[in-house]
Design a protein around this nucleic acid. Structure first.
Length: 297
DNA sequence: GCGTCCAGGTCTACC
DNA sequence: GGTAGACCTGGACGC
């Protein structure tokens, strides 16, 4: 029998704006049904058990329908709050852009909450899979990781469900050849093996970055020590950690800026930095909202 | 069918 | 610290 978990959300939370905040909803183990507006995710509740949950919003209440047993519901509730950032306070950000031309829509649409995974490890692996390739290839790599190394979901209709995202231990159990041949990760393969081994062995705990006291600049340097993580990847992950100081510029973001603010002409990154400088610690989020307005509005 | 380019970059060697 | 070249994949495009 299915369980319905109800989660409280603050007044400015918007389910669709959060789901559409960036491309994560297209990466397994997320699955998005835009006809019913349900976001499905396969939650890992222990090392070898996973359950699927359908997440949606109804009358201002976020709900999760799942076949998971009652004793793991708190895990699903906690992860859902994290995924949708239900406890993020964006009031300061909304107030700072209330009078900014071109950004007044953000607060009205409840935009700015960037969808994320339940673990920093999952977001880190996915971010590496976005580097130097098409979005189609990113989806292929992440899909292969989940299908070939992830834990199968329990419950009825298992065959139609995505596996859970693989654990660091599962990812560390295969070699670079597997990542090249089966995951299609190419030159990223040894980076993924090294990262998985480092986390699985306990030498690195990416989850600790969520509560790190380090200034953003120092934390960025820590993250960049990982192979395969450069400026873009580190700043993208920092945004998912809730730190928006960096713009996480990549070729797509640059091209969008050129079209919207520079007459479709290329310019130096310094010009882009200057454009959003007034937004202070929120500049990365301000730019992201500015560039993705068409997705939300 | 084939070759080339390039996409939501990063690493290493070299200067 | 700045820069050039190499690194994988796969879709788009021109021929």
């Amino acid at each position: 029998m299915a369980t319905v978990v109800e989660l409280s959300a603050c007044d400015d939370f918007d389910f669709r704006s959060t789901v559409y905040s960036h491309g994560w909803s297209e990466l397994e183990p997320f699955r998005l049904d835009t006809a019913k507006w349900r976001l499905t995710y396969t939650f890992r509740v222990s090392r070898d058990r996973a359950f699927s949950g359908d997440i949606f919003s109804e009358c201002g209440v976020v709900k999760v329908v799942t076949d998971a047993p009652q004793h793991v519901v708190p895990t699903i509730e906690r992860d859902t709050r994290h995924i949708l950032r239900l406890d993020d306070d964006l009031g300061e950000f909304y107030r700072s852009i209330a009078s900014v031309q071109g950004l007044s829509w953000v607060a009205a649409k409840g935009a700015g909450r960037l969808l994320r995974s339940p673990t920093v490890f999952e977001d880190l692996i996915k971010t590496i899979c976005t580097t130097n390739c098409s979005w189609a290839l990113t989806k292929t790599m992440v899909g292969n990781l989940v299908t070939k190394l992830g834990t199968a979901a329990h419950g009825p209709e298992r065959s139609s469900r995505s596996n859970a995202f693989p654990t660091p231990e599962a990812m560390a159990s295969v070699d670079a050849g597997f990542y090249r041949k089966e995951v299609r990760a190419g030159y990223r393969s040894p980076y993924l093996v090294e990262l998985a081994e480092t986390v699985a062995s306990g030498r690195l705990d990416p989850e600790a970055w969520l509560s790190s006291d380090l200034p953003t600049g120092e934390l960025k340097r820590e993250i960049k020590k990982l192979k395969g993580v450069g400026d873009y990847a580190a700043e993208n992950l920092l945004k998912l950690l809730g730190r928006y100081d960096g713009l996480a510029l990549d070729s797509w973001l640059r091209s969008q800026f050129y079209k919207k603010h520079n007459g479709a002409r290329a310019c130096d990154d310094a010009v882009i930095e200057q454009h959003y400088a007034d937004h202070g610690r929120w500049r990365g989020l301000a730019m992201w909202c500015d560039m993705t307005e068409k997705w939300i509005v």
